[in-house]
Nucleic acid binder design. Structure first.
Lengths: 213, 213
DNA sequence: CCAAAAGTGTTCCGTCTACACCCATGG
DNA sequence: CCATGGGTGTAGACGGAACACTTTTGG
């Protein structure tokens, strides 16, 4: 019984996935998701959290179960049933030393190599789930820093949905949500003029229930 | 490792769930979902199909994974990780002798008793899944006979979504789908005037991809 | 001074919603 | 003949999509 983690990040305007070279037989050296076995004294989600902490150093992160995978021959060695979890993290929070230590790296989704066993299918499923949910749940903020510009936010949606969005329409919709708050801060890194930084207010969202892209 | 089945049916204008008295310890006698253990020589979905065939006698049915449940103490005895599957069946196909044999019965969702362990949560999750998907996938037909009236179809949507739908608007939308075909047959059981029977054309649907309520 | 990204409203069109009456028939 | 469920069209409201120019400033 194991867990496998589909870790999504967002960087350079693209959706990225964390994959590594498999460190054990069978399949040693193949590209694969990061995973681990479930201990007797922990639940499934707990195991996924522990595994992800091992990998990223982060304690809390957005995590969602993608599903269980249990084909008889999915692992050529012994029978392993695995539960896939999808995590969304902010790439900047990631300790880059850990990348080498764990032999993992970020790849763009459109450059993803074939993965070990059924891992590619897990990624497909996770991406489908993400695409479905992004329109009705405030997931995008997990992929961004606490403070972000509207352009960054829009790029996240575009990367996940795979289509371009009209800037004015997008901003109009965002302004309608009071839980996305404009701050006084200005980001001058990406543009000469400077862009207002926004923040997602979790508490304000809790009260409010409706959300639609 | 086990599978548990959330079996939905539709009868008397209501969404029904198949539950039974648990036949083994711990929890013997409590209301629970029907489940079974996963054998070494079968995949997860295969196990769910086998379990459901045992229960209903049906070989093929709509089946969808709801998720894995693996809290440490979810089973008071030994540790059991289970994968929940949601099945949609036509109540009329069900052999009612099997009801007694397996000690199961249909209950309306609004009269559902508290179920064993985390089974109530599984039902909640399955219902959520169903509500989300019913709008974009042609699931409702699995709950009806091959031939059905538009009123029946509408009742299925109303039962699942929990809200009333305007008859004229509903029928307008249905007519826009060419994979829902009107037949020459008339159902005279439920009304004096008689209602046209319709059929879901799976092949016509395959070609067509879009579906929106 | 110019390149590069930020910011801002209006119009149009299609879609969803609300709504009420006649039809056919079995009992 | 009447009670019961089947079947039909339109108008008005609303929301989503298309669309272009001005602003700021670093280099």
């Amino acid at each position: 019984m194991s867990v496998d983690c589909i870790v999504f990040g967002f960087d350079e305007g693209k959706l990225k996935l964390l994959i590594g070279r498999r460190q054990m037989d069978p399949g040693r050296g193949e590209w694969s998701l990061y995973g681990g076995f479930v201990r007797d004294d922990e639940g499934l989600e707990e195991a996924a959290h522990r595994t992800l902490q091992e990998l990223t150093g982060l304690k809390k992160m957005y995590l969602k179960q993608v599903g269980a995978f249990g084909a008889i021959d999915r692992d050529p060695g012994e029978r392993v049933i695995t539960v896939a979890y999808c995590a969304l993290i902010n790439v900047k929070d990631y300790d880059s030393r850990l990348l080498e230590e764990h032999q993992v790296k970020w790849v763009s989704l459109d450059e993803m190599p074939t993965l070990y066993s059924d891992h590619s299918e897990m990624v497909r499923k996770a991406l489908n789930l993400l695409r479905r949910r992004i329109a009705t749940e405030p997931l995008s903020f997990n992929l961004l820093p606490d403070l972000f510009t509207l352009t960054q936010l829009q790029k996240v949606y575009e990367a996940i949905l795979g289509s371009e969005i009209d800037k004015r329409n997008f901003r109009k919709r965002i302004k309608a949500f009071d839980f996305i708050e404009k701050t006084e801060l200005i980001d001058k890194l990406t543009s000469k003029r400077g862009a207002a930084l926004y923040r997602f207010n979790k508490k304000a969202y809790g009260a409010d229930t409706t959300f639609k892209l």
